[in-house]
Design a protein around this nucleic acid. Sequence first.
DNA 1: CAAAACTGCCTTTTT
DNA 2: GGCAGTTTTG
Length: 705
Amino acid sequence: MKSPGGKSASSKAPGSCPPHGVLLAGLNRAQLEAVTTTEGPLLVLAGAGTGKTRVITHRIAYLMDKGVRERSILAVTFTNKAAREMRERVRRLLGKDASGVTLLTFHSLGARILRAEASLLGYRERYNIYDTSDQLSLIKTILRDIRGALQAADARRVLAAISRAKSRFALPDDFHASASDDWEELVALVYTRYQEELRAMSCVDFDDLILLPVLLLEKEPEVQARYRARFRYLLVDEYQDTNAAQYRLLRCLVGPERNLCVVGDDDQSIYGFRGAEMDKILRFERDFPGARVVKLEENYRSTSNILDLANAVIAGLPARHKKTLRSTLGAGKLVRSVLSPDESGEVNFILGEIQDLLTNEHVQSGQIAILLRAAAQARPFEEKLRIRRISYTVVGGQSYFDRKEVRDVLAYWMAAANPQDDFSLLRILNVPRRGFGQKSIEKLNRLAHSLRVPLQKALELVAHGEEGKTEGDEGFSESCRKAARHVGEIFGRAAGRLERREFSLMARGLLEDSSYREAVDELYPDPLIRQSRWAAVEELHQSVERWEKEGPDGDFGDFLGALSLDRGDRDDKGREAKEEFSQVMLMTLHSAKGLEFPHVFLAGVEEDMLPHKRAVSEGDSAIEEERRLFYVGITRAQKVLTITHAAARSLYGEQKPRQPSRFLLEVAKSGLLVSEIYSPKVEVSEEDVQGYLEQFRRLRARTST
DNA sequence: CAAAACTGCCTTTTT
DNA sequence: GGCAGTTTTG
């Protein structure tokens, strides 16, 4: 396909570097092809460490250099981190900001479309975004309502089912129609109610951010045409992670020119649990006939010993685009696998190694990462890192946004930003205690329902004794009216401040007026704990202030939306940048995707952990995903990779024997890694030693056949 | 109405 | 071994 601009790369083979010399210099042949094939559908299969980000950023720069207008370019990533990094790299490449390029995550894109077109969907443009724990409590409430009782586990399962339905694009009615048993009936019922409540409160969840824009674009051809006319060049990063709804959004946006470039690696598809369908990447050529395919296989990241192991781990996967990573670096050190007697042995071993790297090898702490299957595994490492005074950062894990105080404060803010958000208001209605009882809250709810007004409105009516007569319910107590007046005043003042765009004043004022701070202080008598609790809230305040200083054109809802869509945003930006180089990184395999470190420790590589127990119970395709996860972990390492596992580990408070991961045993035969045993210099009982040796013998026996 | 005891459930992974 | 949700008690 020839590019319309005409002047572009006479696609001569490698080494040729005509007009766009600076931009194209240093790209290998495959990368060059990926960058300069600007017209028509293009699939770039980018193995780990093959310069994927480089291709995307150069491609954006190349398009601009060719004269494509910035606003015609849309680049979509999965994480904000990736989006930020790309923007920065494009900036460095061009020597100027490409601020006209739309470069964001799928969810932010959806949020933006939704905001712009909300009225067409019957939503208000002011909507709150519910995160997983908001969703969960809403579902619990609904379950409680329809069943009387509930189990916590049920709510999670229901939420998972609803979310899966949404990402598969099954609407409540579809879901209901196809429900084939009691469980699905229940889910359908909850799903319907859930969606109704969200809409009534002008709230959306993460899935809606994709789903609703698609509904809109498919229903309104002229809106679709508008977007298609605007975005003429589309780029999608991590294409293997696209779910059905996101795919459909893409299809809405791709115009007749089909200038769609997707970049991904089926071997790194690790988000199936979230509805990602990696067959999309396998099927691309069928979806977009005539698509060009470029494979990037030259790896600039890892030594060949590491890559050989990585290749061996995924070689046996049934459905994949075949790729073999070739290292451009030397052989390097052999990968080690180290068995420790127990969990604390494993931690001690890794920290001992790290200490050695830091003091004897003069490695920077930021060059080292400990990768884990689950966020919970980080804890023992954290404790001992602290004891040894090694600075570290834990990436991922949503603990911050799960703190009670953070949730409370956000609920206050969400209720202020969107007066229809009854659910957020309900959360803090009696926090701190101000005289509402269970009963009066229920009455308020009933009143709001029967009058079909938001809870905030009902509260106002009760405050002034204007609620009128309702059947059955006797009136509201004086203490309840008083409390209602109080809450009414608080939010009334907040609304005024929002009106005047006094955002941070509103944010702080709301907590002052409500005496929330005093309540928190009272709850934590220990000053140290109190301080750390409040520090989390302070962080929130600071992000409001930071946002306000940037002179935003949006309203407070935009701030809250950005916060839900980008949880890393709350971090002090300076701190983040500085510390990344001076801290040992502790993170899950999922959050490590896309990153690289000279020294990597892959910990807890045991059956039931990697592959995870749940994946094992779910069957083959889940286990394949775990295998890819292992692959992702291995390919993070640049120079030295150490895989560790323990012979026993305490789980649920009990010491349990552990087996090495099947993936580890599989490659142990290959000679691609050396197996070692760590003998901690601590007292162990004879029994422990026996058990330990037994484990070792078994490992040996199984690996040597 | 709130604190204290008590139960049962866990534990993937993230926008 | 820890949390969250529930029941019991003061």
